[in-house]
Amino acid sequence: MGEASDYVPMALTKAFRDAQGDEKFQGWLKMQDASMGIEFPIYDLPEIRDSMYTKESLAVAEQKLLDLYEEHRAAFTDEENLHRTMRFAYYIGETYRQAFEGRWVAIPTRGPDGEVTGTQPGIQVPFREDFIRPVEQIRSALVRRSGKQINRVYGHAERDYNQWIEDGRPEVRYIGTLRENDD
């Protein structure tokens, strides 16, 4: 029987490295970045126009998502909702990226057969193995409906980031002990 740490960390896989050049992902990033200066603070969330990318603005964003969608599936059902939801995902991710020295990454998704089927956007931070996944944060916020979910997760990242700084900014320690062959 294997150990819980018997896995290859996603950031160390060939699939992850290959996904970073995905043209669709790169195009999505550019489109979302542009919408942050035009669409998002004017039409989606004008309440945060003067406090973009702050911890406090995440609570406003989460409440707006709760007001827009009565349940999590609605955020992803039609094209208009999906595009709006992805603007919120970008906003949430960009808030983390700016606060915690992160970078946008394309996280490979796999089908039931284990083959890569696409990517999802995420933020890689220098102090933890796992990624911040804004779409999953939206889904969780819409399922739990507490109005505090996204800020709760942000608080955990903030604590970990501050500890990482206090510890002298060490390299990420991967818990997964397996590594891929680069054949």
Rank of each mutant, 00 (worst) to 15 (best):
Y154S: 03
R152S: 14
A75L: 07
G118L: 04
A89S: 13
M31N: 11
Y7Q: 03
T13L: 10
Q149S: 14
E80G: 09
A141M: 06
F76I: 12
D50G: 06
G168A: 10
P134T: 06
A61S: 10
Y7A: 08
I138M: 05
T117P: 01
G93V: 04
I48P: 02
A157N: 12
D182G: 07
A74N: 09
D22G: 00
E171P: 13
R87Y: 08
Q137E: 13
A34I: 05
R110P: 01
A89P: 00
E70P: 02
I92P: 00
G118V: 08
I150R: 02
V153R: 06
P108N: 06
M52F: 07
L58C: 06
T119Q: 07
T85N: 03
S51Y: 07
D182W: 14
E70Y: 10
D160F: 09
F40V: 02
F76W: 15
N81G: 09
Q63G: 12
E56F: 08
R87I: 02
Q20K: 00
P46T: 08
R144L: 15
Y43F: 15
S146C: 07
I123P: 01
S51D: 15
Y91K: 01
I42W: 08
R87T: 04
F127P: 02
V105Y: 01
E3D: 15
D44K: 12
N151Q: 13
R139I: 15
R144E: 14
M31D: 10
